[in-house]
Design a protein around this nucleic acid. Sequence first.
DNA 1: TCATTAAGCGTTG
DNA 2: CAACGCTTAATGA
Length: 224
Amino acid sequence: MISADHLRRVAFWSHDLNEDEFERARKGIVEKSFSGGAYICHRGDRLDSWTGVTAGLIKLGTVSKTGKAVTLAGLREGGWFGEGTLLKDEARQYDLVALRDTAMAYMNRATFFWLFDNSAAFNRYLVRQFNERLGQFIALVEYDRMLDSTARVARNIAWLFNPVLYRNPGLHLEISQEEIGALSGVSRQVANQSLKTLENEKLLRLDRGGITVLNLEALSRYGE
DNA sequence: TCATTAAGCGTTG
DNA sequence: CAACGCTTAATGA
């Protein structure tokens, strides 16, 4: 169980719940920590919870048949996922890796399904999230053929600032260039070059140990 | 051959 | 002390 204040801070969807729903959610959630580089779960694991990132940064990816690592998405604090796996009662489709020291929240299955059956607000949130993710995965098809690394970096950053997935995410994010590279599937050097290009184009600003987005719209469309 | 990357190292904030 | 930038040697398309 986690504190009410903490839940409100790390799960914006909880703001929409009524008192009873909120209490149930709170009681059904536990938190766990992972250090940087650690696997949070492997593809094929049966993780029987709905999960959220409450601190840090994680990478959601898989390994292709040829043994190449493919990153599908990055999640930052406030990002919740795994509802698809839970609803379909499947094993996890992806590997989850903590890119730095990270804390994860786990909502048990019974609580998730209680909210799913009883809370209109929770369902609205899920539908919005599904819809947004669908858009992301459609973009992935194009993304795959689009070899330009700057465009990859731009879009990965834009995803971390998605206003639906993260309610008012702000303009700044503490993230190193190495972490951006890991998320975008490019090396540190290339991430650095791409970021400089984007900075020259006034789409973002590089700060030490972080970035500030100046034009989210352009970042999310970069390379079109 | 040419491009890309991981690794190491010096600098910086 | 971690992030950044640069060099270099290895890798591979």
